[in-house]
Design a protein around this nucleic acid. Structure first.
Length: 962
DNA sequence: GTAAATATCCCCC
DNA sequence: TTCTGACAGATTCGG
DNA sequence: CCGAATCTGTCAGAAGGGGGATATTTAC
């Protein structure tokens, strides 16, 4: 029996899916195309008119519809949902009649939709009756501070009938169920089981239910086909393997996919496009297209492992004719897939499941699944306290159906505690060794508690980086850290690099991870071994921020590392965290990110290096066999500086530099920090990184920093620091009347803590400039933004030509409400929005789906001005061939006080470019005097002004809708 | 049959 | 990289 | 004291500009 809450969720969600149907053009590819392909694209791909914007009937229900989407807004709908159903039915019949085909499949589908139909109808009633307080769009904008109240739709939903096999409900509380009976007839998990799980996932947005579904799914697989587990997890993770391994990329996009789909459907390209228009989601299109096909001989059922292996085949394919070969594999998969499976095969192929579960949730589910259903390979005796045993589980009771939630029973409390512990171990392990395959092997072959030892931090396997939280002013930083000593480091505009070095034959050599999930193909292709010169050799790897192996790209860094090893024979293995920055080879002055990205990436030879770089080290995570993660930043930094003094090569052509990042500490005084920040603003830096030096506690209340410092003490990392210690803290807090949060200065992979704060100059409202731009065109959004305009093309005002010129696209900074209002202000086909360029604008290399009548001005921010191959703004002012564009554009507010003639001009942009280009800085940290002397703003004024601007902005954003 | 242009995909920020 | 929004848990507020 | 309202942290998923790598198409 399904818990009531689950039933409600499920039906509500099913209903969401229908709402989520939307129109979208066939061309899914991005539209950042050079001007030349404009004509072709506009002709073939982009079907721009959508029913919602065109039909008056839809306009009539518009308000109601968006009200619906509020409930579980997976994108809203451009059509009355009920009608979608009718049309689908009709279409199905038509297809069946035309092609003379598989009525059974269509019937089953009909049944499914009909039950959903009932749900929608009911839901509609409920909403109408229950809630008159959901305002229409206009009312909403009148009282913007109130967000629409949450809806609870209480209705019973007839269960849809799976076409092929009957699978259990997966939403139930895993503590109340057990995966006893095998759910499939074969030895291996069929793909249909996974498909069922995905289907269930897509029906809800509740984190709790998503976790339940995933956990239950994995439990069944652990219990009945553990060898398929790794494959299943990768299929669920939108990836084929750890990013640091080669050949985990499919290298296929929308174009290959639709090309492959076409022949499996016996539909014409035009019909397929029609389906795209109808449904929006490519996976749904595949599903409907396939629903019209009859196969004479039913293919053998697709298995999870079979699917995964086929994907590996695709990823491994190389050379001439790959597209054809990949197409064939895909076609094979689509033929094999039945019913619902088609949708998920297709979404997996596009590596975008969109079911609300990615890395963290998946790891949680893995942990819980193993804690509840231990690997069949293990004897039941060991480590009982790490698992939720059958006895314990059977004592857990279901909460009663009433609305009152009584306190959970003791067994549940205990079980939940065990689950949380398991999550902690698995997440921590993954953060230090992000490889699902290794973790699953570890869990299948060892106890939960042994996992960290079985899958340890290893040289050669990148660990996830610590993340910094964005801050908007220096003041906010002092506020957050309430007196804890910190270091302020320059944030360079380059590329993150995690450098792994291990001298071969040293005592601390770590295996580079066994049991790779990537089978066959050239698994461990790139082993980079550098010759130190004194007879030693070392293996070296350089990883990017997203843990991609980019050792290829930096032969000069490898050379530098060889020199470092040569000058210090005691170095055996280490992991450095650093930033690679482009440098002027002679002066050592910093260069821009854009220049760094001009470097070649593959098979780079030392001689071919055109852009010199420096490696600016800021952390040391491992040294000579010893992980340093649990040491404080102060300690790690000291060790780093002790063992890795800066290095300047004799010949800049043959080796990169090694530098320490420039920094000051809070102990140097506030003025010093302020000056440092001003230098960051004036120079070619992104801003500052602020890092806690010692572990401590942050005090939220008035109790002041003293208590915090008192409590500050280096913390030993350990699994069970909980228990008594925590209670003690809580009690102390109660007495003091202050809340404290522990703030560790240890290296916390994958955590976005307050221990690392980033202050970028473009976050700070009074620094960096903002632009006033004119919206001149747009595209249809995807997924969540399917019923809105997104992105939007923005232009500057060119006085000479007397018309707007496109500068950049923009999609960030808009609220949902703003999008809705935009739909009204620029309704397709109205006098403000047209599929053809009715107004005199220069769009350069952009070809938007629709053009807007240029009559508004928006305030927009960005980090930098870039030289652009697409934009034509200010062409000739900086570069004869290329225009200028904006890095990280984001919408701030509507400027209804400005006319388009008052928008920014190409000259403005060019001036900003010159200003940032002339910025001073340099590796030595010297600031050339006399530059930009007017830019320095008193910090106090700054933050006050910022606050004002901030609140103003909020208001404006809302007002924009009125 | 080879070289240049174009299209896609992916990855950096 | 940027951003917003949804959930869920924790805290505060009002009767 | 309890339930509602509000705050906070975490997670997911939209998508920006630029540029290299590679396969495919076109031009000579």
């Amino acid at each position: 029996m399904l818990p009531r809450a689950a039933r409600i969720q499920r039906s509500g969600a099913r209903y969401t899916r229908i709402l989520a149907m939307s129109k979208r053009p066939l061309a899914i590819s991005t539209a950042s195309s050079p001007a030349k392909k404009k004509a072709k694209k506009d002709g073939a791909g982009q079907q721009s008119i959508s029913a919602f914007f065109a039909s008056p009937k839809a306009a009539k229900v518009g308000a109601t519809t968006s009200t619906f989407s509020e409930i579980k807004g997976t994108g809203g709908s451009r059509q009355d949902p009920v009608e979608v159903l009718d049309e689908d039915e009709e279409l199905a019949r038509k297809l069946a009649a035309e092609e003379g085909m598989d009525l059974d499949a269509i019937r089953a589908e009909e049944a499914r939709w009909r039950s959903a139909n009932a749900a929608v109808a009911h839901a509609k009633e409920v909403v109408k009756d229950e809630d008159r307080s959901i305002p229409s769009l206009r009312e909403e904008s009148a009282s913007p501070s109130k967000t629409a109240p949450k809806q609870h739709i209480n209705l019973a939903m007839p269960k849809s009938k799976p076409t092929i096999m009957t699978f259990p409900d997966l939403l139930m509380d895993p503590l109340l169920t057990t995966p006893e009976a095998c759910q499939w007839p074969s030895a291996r998990v069929p793909f249909s089981f996974l498909s069922h799980a995905l289907e269930s996932l897509s029906c809800t947005r509740s984190r709790i239910l998503i976790l339940n579904i995933l956990t239950n799914t994995l439990r069944y697989i652990i219990a009945h086909d553990p060898t398929s587990l790794t494959a299943a997890v990768y299929l669920l993770s939108n990836s084929l393997g750890p990013t640091y391994q080669p050949n985990t990329e499919l290298n296929i996009g929308g174009s290959v996919l639709s090309k492959a789909l076409l022949p499996t459907t016996s539909l014409t390209a035009a019909k397929l496009r029609q389906l795209y228009q109808k449904h929006g989601d490519p996976g749904d299109v595949a599903f409907y297209a396939k629903a019209s096909v009859r196969t004479l001989i039913p293919p053998s059922p697709l298995t999870v492992e079979g699917m995964y292996n086929k994907l590996l085949d695709i990823a491994g394919a190389k050379g001439q004719g790959v597209v054809k070969r990949k197409e064939e594999i895909i076609r094979g998969l689509l033929v094999q897939a039945q019913g619902e499976e088609v949708r998920w095969v297709y979404r997996i192929l596009s590596m975008n499941l969109r079911v609300g579960a990615v890395r963290n949730t998946l790891l949680q589910a893995i942990a819980r699944a193993f804690a509840l259903s231990p690997s069949p390979n293990l004897s039941q005796k060991e480590g009982k306290e790490e698992y939720v045993t059958e006895e314990l589980r059977s004592q857990v009771t279901a909460p009663p159906e009433g609305k009152k939630k009584p306190p959970p029973d003791a067994a549940r409390v205990k079980a939940t505690d065990i689950l949380l512990k398991a999550e902690g171990t698995v997440k921590r392990t993954y953060a230090q060794h992000p490889n699902y395959g290794h973790i699953i092997n570890g869990l299948l072959n060892g106890r939960l508690g042994e996992l960290p030892d079985r899958v340890p931090l290893s040289v050669g396997v990148p660990l996830l980086p610590t993340l910094g939280s964005p801050m908007r002013s220096l003041e906010e930083i002092y506020d957050r850290l309430s007196g804890l000593p910190f270091s302020a480091e320059m944030k360079y505009d380059g590329q993150r690099a995690q450098v792994h070095v291990c001298v071969l034959g040293s005592t601390h050599t770590h295996a580079n991870g066994s049991a790779s999930p990537i089978k066959g193909k050239e698994g461990s292709a790139n082993q980079f071994v550098v010759d130190v010169g004194d007879g030693r050799k070392a293996s070296v790897k350089v990883f990017s921020r997203h843990l991609e192996d980019m050792t290829d790209k930096y032969p000069d860094i490898l050379a530098m590392l060889a020199s470092i090893l040569a000058r210090d024979p005691s170095l055996e293995s280490f992991i450095l965290d650093a930033e690679v920055v482009a440098l002027d080879p002679t002066t050592g002055a910093l260069k821009t990110f854009q220049e760094l990205s001009n470097r070649a990436r593959k098979d780079v030879k030392l001689e071919d290096v055109k852009v010199s770089v420096g490696l600016f080290a800021f952390d040391l995570l491992y040294l000579n066999g010893q992980p340093l993660l649990s040491e404080t930043f102060r300690q790690r930094r000291a060790t780093l500086r002790q063992h890795f003094p800066p290095y300047t090569p004799q010949d800049v052509r043959l080796s990169a530099r090694l530098e320490w990042v420039e920094n000051v500490d809070s102990e140097d005084g506030e003025e010093v920090v302020l000056e440092f920040w001003e230098r960051a603003v004036a120079g070619k830096y992104e801003g500052l990184m602020i890092k806690i030096l010692d572990s401590g506690e942050v005090v939220d209340d008035e109790l002041g920093p003293k208590a915090a410092e008192e409590a500050a003490s280096p913390k030993k990392r350990g699994k069970n620091k909980a228990g008594a210690e925590e209670e003690e803290t809580k009690e102390r807090e109660k007495k003091n009347g202050s809340r404290r949060k522990p703030l560790p200065a240890t290296y916390e992979p994958d955590k976005r803590t307050m221990a690392w704060l980033k202050l970028k100059k473009d976050y700070v409202l009074t620094t960096g400039d903002s632009l006033d731009l004119i919206p001149i065109g747009a595209w249809h959004g995807n997924g969540r933004k399917a019923s809105w305009w997104s992105p939007i093309l923005l232009g500057v005002w060119d006085e000479n030509e007397g018309r707007p010129v496109a500068l950049c696209k923009c999609m960030s900074g808009f609220t949902d409400l703003f999008y809705k209002c935009l739909n009204e202000r620029y309704r397709e086909g109205s006098d403000t929005c047209s599929g053809t360029p009715l107004w005199d604008v220069e769009t350069g290399g952009y070809s938007p789906t629709v053009y807007f009548k240029p009559h508004e001005v928006w305030e927009v921010r960005g980090a930098d001005i870039t030289v652009s191959p697409t934009s034509v703004t200010a062409k000739g002012l900086i570069d004869p061939e290329r225009g200028l564009s904006l890095r990280f554009p984001r919408f701030m507010k509507l400027r209804d006080d400005k006319r388009i003639e008052h928008a920014s001009t190409p000259e403005d942009i060019a001036r900003m470019y010159r200003k940032q280009d002339g910025r001073v800085g340099g590796a030595g940290g010297k600031v050339a005097p006399g530059m930009d002397d007017g830019e320095l703003v008193d910090v106090e004024l700054e933050s006050e002004a910022a606050e004002e601007i901030e609140s103003e902005r909020e208001e404006d954003k809302v007002q924009a809708s009125a």
